[in-house]
């Protein structure tokens, strides 16, 4: 696998604020790579440096083998980007925007197909100012793809989309990757990173604190499985006698048992032994959210 994006020791400060302290990572060809972290962690600054929208203070950057600072013009024709803070003129129509941006690059693909794929055909004659947040977002992603890029940067692409819209967007991002386009995705949504990304860099306070596949991160940084069921039985202290059980929590009738290894089978057997046969016995696998909490000591929204 060749690296299409290389970042070594990137540093960027704004006055006394350190936006990116020291970031290094590589994005491989054809993967969906996520930068995951809370707002203000330095994710957007990182990709803005890669697109030469900001000047890094230090570090070595390469995108498609090109130096973003000295070869920006060549590079921008080969990448696509959906920016977080950008807009179009209020009175430009959807089709005009697509047609305009498609004409920047010679032999760009048919923008009508993109308009269709991103659900904008009904809105083709609508002005930018009349679009909802989600429609604007979809238009920006379509504009990011209009030059048939080899790498696409998506910055908080699903912000403002409703749950159904997010699902559709995820499918489309997978479809972008299927075409062979490498995707660098910036997000603060744990589920999005978990669902979409082949590998995730967890960013906090301008540093990358972990980098692996979502499964790998979960396996490395969490150990406990949660077994959940409901019962009215008051005394469950015997559950704590099972060696693999680490903790039992009660929230009304809902019981949460944390443990490791074959804890589900052992809990189930012990419950049956005590004449309790809950119909809702299930396990919850740890998620990236748990990884994030474990690594940073705070949630993404703190």
């Amino acid at each position: 696998m060749t690296a299409v994006i290389e970042v070594e020791h990137l540093r960027k400060t704004y006055g006394t604020t350190v936006a990116v302290a020291d970031a290094s990572f590589q994005v491989r060809e054809g993967e969906i790579f996520g930068l995951l972290g809370p707002n203000g962690a330095g994710k957007t600054t990182t990709i803005e440096c890669l697109q030469n929208l900001r000047q890094p203070d230090a570090g070595h950057l390469r995108v498609l083998g090109l130096d973003p600072q000295t070869e920006a013009v060549t590079l921008r024709r080969r990448i696509g980007c959906q920016l977080q803070e950008s807009a179009l003129p209020d009175r430009i129509r959807v089709w005009e925007a697509l047609d305009l941006f498609a004409s920047i690059v010679p032999d760009s693909p048919d923008w009508q197909i993109l308009m269709e794929q991103w659900g904008l055909t009904d809105k083709r004659r609508a002005s930018f100012s009349s679009l909802s947040g989600g429609q604007r977002q979809r238009l920006f992603v379509a504009l990011a793809l209009v030059n048939n890029p080899e790498v696409v940067f998506l910055d908080e692409m699903t912000t403002g989309l409703d749950p159904a819209g997010r699902r559709v967007a995820w499918e489309l991002v997978r479809a972008i990757r299927e075409r062979g386009t490498t995707v660098l995705l910036v997000t603060h949504f744990m589920d999005e990173a978990e669902q979409l990304c082949d590998r995730v860099a967890v960013v906090d306070n301008g540093k990358i604190i972990a980098l692996d596949s979502p499964r790998g991160l979960i396996a490395t940084h969490t150990s406990d499985i949660r077994v959940i069921f409901s019962t009215d039985v008051a005394d469950l202290s015997w559950l704590e006698d099972i060696p693999q059980v680490h903790r039992v929590d009660r929230h009304g009738p809902r019981i949460e048992v944390e443990g490791s290894g074959p804890v589900l089978a052992l809990v189930a057997a012990t419950l049956v032994e005590h004449g309790i046969t809950p119909t809702d016995l299930r396990t919850e696998q740890p998620t990236l959210e748990d990884v994030f909490l474990r690594l940073t000591g705070h949630g993404v929204h703190d």
């Binding site: 929208l53 013009v73 980007c81 920016l83 950008s86 807009a87 179009l88 920047i104 690059v105």
Partner: peptide, 17 residues
């Protein structure tokens, strides 16, 4: 207005000269 609203930024990122 283009600069303030990020339209120029959008143009620049799409290699508009």
């Amino acid at each position: 207005a283009y600069r303030e609203r990020g339209v120029l930024r959008r143009f620049r990122a799409s290699s508009m000269s």
